[in-house]
């Protein structure tokens, strides 16, 4: 009995190697496969970046190096306007969906209420529902309510950046909730108990302990919402009104007509922005 009670609680944390025996055929096959997949994923991206610097006016051949297309881009008011609109929508929807999503995540992880399973389901729906269905239902919804408002008040409302922003908030919230909930789940509840034990009331515990520790999660959620909004094309296409162009919609319209090196350039810039955002969110995770 005395011996038996002295069990140690060491848990193996080292990842065991996956040995396939002495034959390395499997490793070779996997390695070659991986190389091909990475080529498949990156050759198109590399081509896109490369051809944003080509002198060829069709943008599909290498005829020499130039920065011209980037220069033209920045003097193209229409594209720049669309880019600014996109940034504005992304920022606004990020702020709103981060606040709403964080509150929801707190409610889901830290309180008990009877409708929990139903709310849980509602929160997952915007993630799994096909984007096009969400887009066209929002389109119908706004048209429907604009009609009612016109009938009641006589005021005519039109789709605008506001409708796009409202729609982006609706589909970003759930993603923010998922990210923030994960960091709340990973949060050791005993830290809150420890704070209470040391004399901190609920409010102080939240701001001194909980918030600083889930902040990376909240920022991660915000970055996700920002990226989702920047990248969104389908909802933007359906919900932006006439005259309020957004960058992905603008690019789509041009691409449908022809490939141009200018599009290569703006696509490259969008790519760089995405890479920066991924990098930021990864750095954030590693710091945890």
């Amino acid at each position: 009995m005395i011996e038996a009670s002295s069990k140690t609680q060491a848990r193996p944390t080292v990842r065991p190697g996956f040995r396939l025996g002495t034959i390395s055929w499997g490793n070779w096959a996997l390695g070659t496969h991986a190389l091909l997949v990475y080529l498949f994923l990156y050759v198109p991206i590399a081509v896109l970046v490369l051809f944003s610097f080509t002198q060829d006016q069709f943008g599909t051949r290498w005829t020499g190096f130039t920065f011209d297309w980037y220069a033209r881009l920045f003097s193209n008011d229409r594209l720049m306007g669309a880019a600014l609109n996109t940034l504005y929508v992304a920022l606004a929807s990020t702020v709103a969906s981060t606040v709403l999503g964080t509150l929801l995540a707190m409610a889901m992880e830290r309180t008990r209420f009877r409708a929990r399973p139903a709310v849980d389901g509602l929160l997952y729906l915007p993630i799994v529902i096909p984007e096009i269905v969400m887009a066209l239902s929002l389109l119908a919804f706004f048209a429907f309510f604009f009609d009612i408002i016109e009938f009641v008040t006589g005021a005519t409302l039109r789709r605008s950046l506001t409708t796009v922003t409202l729609a982006h908030i609706a589909f970003s919230i759930s993603f923010v909730v998922v990210v923030v909930r994960t960091s709340l789940k990973n949060f050791d509840m005993r830290l809150e108990e420890a704070a209470a034990d040391l004399g901190a009331n609920g409010w102080k515990t939240f701001w001194r302990i909980t918030f600083p520790l889930i902040l990376p999660g909240i920022i991660g959620g915000a970055l996700l919402a920002f990226t989702l909004s920047l990248d969104d094309f389908i909802i933007s296409l359906f919900l932006s009104g006439p005259g309020t162009s957004l960058l992905p919609v603008e690019v789509y319209g041009r691409v449908k007509r022809a490939i141009t090196p200018e599009i290569n350039a703006i696509s490259t810039l969008m790519l760089m922005l995405s890479m920066t955002l991924v990098f930021l969110s990864q750095v954030l995770q590693r710091r945890r």
């Binding site: 005993r190 108990e193 209470a196």
Partner: peptide, 28 residues
């Protein structure tokens, strides 16, 4: 509530605040 009781706890897994230094933990 716990924060108004004249007792303190040493937790099983210590529950030290990871975002604070040792001094900050003790000063809390």
């Amino acid at each position: 509530p716990p924060y108004q009781r004249p007792v303190n706890t040493v937790f099983q897994s210590y529950a030290l605040f990871p975002h604070m230094t040792v001094e900050q933990n003790v000063a809390f």
